[in-house]
Amino acid sequence: MTSSRLFPLATTLLIFVVAYALCIVQYPNMLSTRVLGNLLTDNAFLGIAAVGMTFVILSGGIDLSIGSVIAFTGVFLAVAMGEWGVPPLLAIALLLVLATLFGAVMGAMIHYLAMPPFIVTLAGMFFARGMAFLISIDSVPIKAGLYDTLHGLYFKMPGGGRLTFIGMAMLAVFAVGILVAHFTSFGRNVYAIGGNRQSAELMGVPIARTTIAIYALSSFLAGLAGIAFSLYTSAGYSLAAVGVELDAIAAVVIGGTLLTGGSGFVAGTLLGILIMGLIQTYIVFDGTLSSWWTKIVIGLLLFSFIALQRGLVWLSARRSGAAAMPA
C-alpha cells in the first residue's frame, strides 16, 4: 500500500516533468536558470504559506486566514518601520510573535470550543484583514536598510539566473517542513489526528497541544510569507494577497495531500507550487494568452486531482475488501 500512498506524489512529479518538457519543446528558452530563479522568487511567499497549509490539511483542518495574515504583515511592517520608527528586526520579531499568537488562539478555539476550523479561520480571515485596514488603508512603501541588504543577497546561478533571498528562504522552509512532518513526534501527531482524531486521542496523542501548535505554525508561516511578500513588493497594502489561502490549498491538493487529512507529503506541496508557477511562466512566455488561463488550468488540475484521490480511496477500499475475502 506504500505505493498507493506515493502514487499522488508520483503523479504530481510526472505532471510537472511532462509539463515542463512540453514548455521547453515550444519555448526552448524556458530551460534556463533564469526561469527557475524567477519561478522560486515569484512564488516564494505562496510556498512558505503553503507549507503551513500542508500541516493544517494533513491534520484534517483548513486555514482560510493566511491571505489576510500576509496582508496584515505587509501593512504592519510598512507602518511600524516607517511611521512608528520601530527598528526593522524588532518589527519583524514582533510581527512573528503576533501572528503565532493569532494562530494559537484560533487553534485553541477550534479545539476547546469544538468549532469547525472552516468557521474559526474564516472569522480569523475577516479579523486579520480588518486589522490591516485599521492600521492603514493605503499602499505603504517600505524603505529600510535591512530590505535593501536582503534584496542584494542572492546567488548567481550558472546561466544568469538569480536564486534570491526569498527563494532560498522558501526552500529552507520546505526543508524544515519536510523534517518536521516526517521525522518529529509533532509530525507523527499531525498525521495521527488527520487519520482519526478519536483513535489518536486513545493512543495518547496530545490533541489540544497539537491542534494549537498546528494553527500557530500555519499563522507563523503566513507571517513569514508576509515578510517574503513585503520583500517582493517593497510595500504593504491591506488589499494585497486576497485569495492566497485558496492558492495555497490548491497547491497542497495538487501536491497530492488528501483534503480529508492523514495522507500526503510536504514535498508534494513544493511540486504543486512549481506546477502553478510553471503555468504562469508559460503564459508570460506565450504573451497572447490571458492570465486567467492560469486559473482555468489550475481549476482543471484540481478537478482531476480530486477525481484521482477519490479513485484511490475507492481502489484501496476495494482492495482491502478483497484482502478480507480469503480469511
Binding site: R188, Y191, A192, G194, S199, A200, M203, V205, G262
Partner: peptide, 18 residues
C-alpha cells in the same frame, strides 16, 4: 480497533514514544 490505518505498522506501535 483503535489504531491509525493511515500510519505504518511501526508508527502505530511507537506513536507517542518514537
Amino acid at each position: 480497533v483503535n489504531l491509525l490505518p493511515n500510519l505504518t505498522v511501526a508508527e502505530n506501535l511507537f506513536l507517542g514514544r518514537e
